[in-house]
Design a protein around this nucleic acid. Structure first.
Lengths: 355, 355
DNA sequence: CATGATTTTGGGAATGTTCCCAAAAATATA
DNA sequence: TATATTTTTGGGAACATTCCCAAAATCATG
């Protein structure tokens, strides 16, 4: 049961002033006597007065709130992106509402409605792996609420986007495997609905082709990113008449699952089969052998997405041109592809304490 | 630049109705002709009408929004708690705003103001390690906005709280070390400001005392949970004239940092020194050796905290009695304390895919 | 001390919605 | 057909704030 809220009228009445004067005193308007302002601020502090942002938002039609929608946040990736974005947005005076869709298209739509109802000024989005229809995001666009996609981006919408160079990252990962002498390189790919999944697959293909290695469709498997499936597919690959001598996985959790399966079969990594992941999850530096992986500037993805959104919000005339930012990736080489590299698997750990 | 928002008045004008009737049609009030309701709903859908939650909140003085404040969310702990809480709250029709204080007291106070200004109906809080003064939380209490503490709880406030049995968890962890024959058991503890840090220390002490092992103050170190400090203190302990033969760490990141230092010194785990952590981070099952740790029902902490908050919100008469829920912990035994246990370090992995 | 200029204050509209009460329309009853 | 009853609709107040314009108070200048 909430008690009566303190309003500017309460303050006005106690001090025998009008609400207008109190409002001016609180917002720092110059036209108010110093003495009066002091009296108002003093009483406001004493009563724990908090201006009602709802009323102001209703009046100004701006909530100073940005919605961030992510498909999950159990892995470290999205929390880090959010932290980066939040930092930039907070400095610009915006609050942040975080929604996670749990990789469910239905939940994503519900979140969409929610953000629309709470009248956010803009949204940052990484859609779910199930999302193939983007009508629910176009509503924002039609209402003039800026949308910025990050990480999982949408070709069919003309809005600002932040991605990493998935193609190049994948290309270099596969080229690295080729240089270590591997020839039968498998790829555990993600669902076709994800743009970055498609780009990484292209990078994989082109690296092989450019090194005169034929592409064997039996070595390419797209899956839905649920780890029990990964387990099945890795086993399947190992059971092939001509099993692969290397595996490029769509992401680190997949690579780690593969590593687990391969170790339990008593195969040697990287001699029998080498593994490369994608995204440099903190875990990847800690396991044995350390996982070679394509790192991405996670924090910077969030910061950049926030900046693009602020660009859209700042323009008070017509809508500014959408921008596309592609951030570079970097190959981190560890024991899963090269012997003697990071033998303990411990390197550049940066995770924080938890309780 | 946001375009004109569609309001019920727009709908009312186009259909030659009053705003009252449109409002009734949209909210499902029975007293409206079926034909009229259909016309209204149809036009509303066509115009992408979204009711303005701000206006409603202003009127009802309830925002249907809950604030969750956590000290960090880079480790997996708090994201999991948030997911649990969010699930329960969403089912009860509440939205969630997440704030992370980045372990900074200052930021926590800013977040407090922010949640107060956005008029949340209640808050779930885990305070920072720096927080020793809780006045900023008492403001909520005074305004009749329910507060529930979880994980890091506050003795001096009479509100609902959710904790795990830190004392018992620590006791069992240390007892386990004693049973494996260890006698010089060190404890890397957290800051005294955290209630769970104190409880774990008590569990450690009592386990030693009850097994007639004298407590050596040189083996107890409280630190601020920043990993570089952990590194220094572990080295310090190993350099003692009589180094410990086991280490009970306040949390898993600390334990993993210790493991790293100990391995790099060429000591055997657990023969030369055994390690136990706290909270069963997903990483703990993946490293080598697997980390023995005290697991807590992370998801359930969030769900339970949400339930306690709903209890407070549901009561429409006077304020209900605060509740205290203490959830059980469970010792997970792995290779860092027992040889031959989980030799690969891979066990019960449940982390999700990331990009 | 009067006049004009400037500073300070007050009143009302506006924001989008719900809810209460009254009015109008439709329906039932005599 | 007139009256009573029920259903459906409309008009205003209320929520907390800001902003514009006018009114009041203060100040400076001759």
């Amino acid at each position: 049961m909430k008690s009566h809220q303190i309003t500017i009228i309460d303050i006005a009445n106690t001090l025998n002033l009008s609400k207008s004067t109190v409002s001016r005193a609180l917002t720092g308007h110059p036209n108010v006597k110093v003495k009066t302002r002091e009296r108002v601020l003093e009483l406001a502090a004493e009563l724990d007065y908090q201006r009602n942002q709802l009323a102001i938002s209703l009046l100004t039609n701006r909530t100073q709130t940005i919605g961030i929608m992510v498909p999950e946040f159990l892995s470290s990736f999205f929390p880090k992106v959010i932290i980066g974005a939040q930092d930039v947005l907070a400095k610009a005076g915006y609050n942040v509402v975080i929604c996670h869709s749990n990789e469910s298209y239905e939940t994503e739509i519900v979140n969409t409605k929610l953000l629309l109802a709470s009248r956010v000024d803009g949204i940052l989005v990484s859609h779910t792996k199930e999302t193939r229809n983007f009508e629910h995001f176009k509503i924002f666009d039609r209402k003039g609420i800026p949308v910025v996609f990050f990480n999982r981006i949408v070709d069919e919408m003309s809005v600002s986007k932040v991605a990493v160079d998935d193609y190049e990252g994948a290309y270099q990962a596969v080229e690295h495997l080729i240089k270590t002498g591997k020839r039968r390189i498998a790829h555990l790919s993600g669902p076709d609905s994800l743009q970055n999944s498609r780009s990484r697959l292209n990078g994989y293909r082109d690296a092989l082709t450019n090194h005169q290695i034929p592409i064997d469709p039996a070595l390419i498997i797209s899956y839905d990113l649920t780890l029990d499936k990964a387990n099945i597919y890795v086993n399947h690959l190992l059971n092939l008449p001509q099993p692969p001598d290397a595996l490029f996985a769509i992401n680190d959790p997949t690579a780690i699952e593969a590593l687990k399966v391969i170790k339990s079969r008593g195969l040697r990594i990287p001699e029998d089969i080498a593994i490369v992941g994608f995204s440099d999850d903190p875990i990847s530096a800690l396991i044995e052998p350390g996982l070679t992986t394509v790192s991405q500037p996670v924090d910077e993805i969030g910061r950049e997405a926030a900046r693009l959104l602020l660009n859209q919000l700042a323009a008070d005339d017509e809508r500014p041109e959408p921008e596309l930012v592609v951030l570079p990736t970097r190959l981190i080489i560890r024991g899963s592809t090269v012997t003697g590299e990071n033998p303990t698997g411990f390197a550049d750990q940066t995770s924080l304490p938890s309780f």
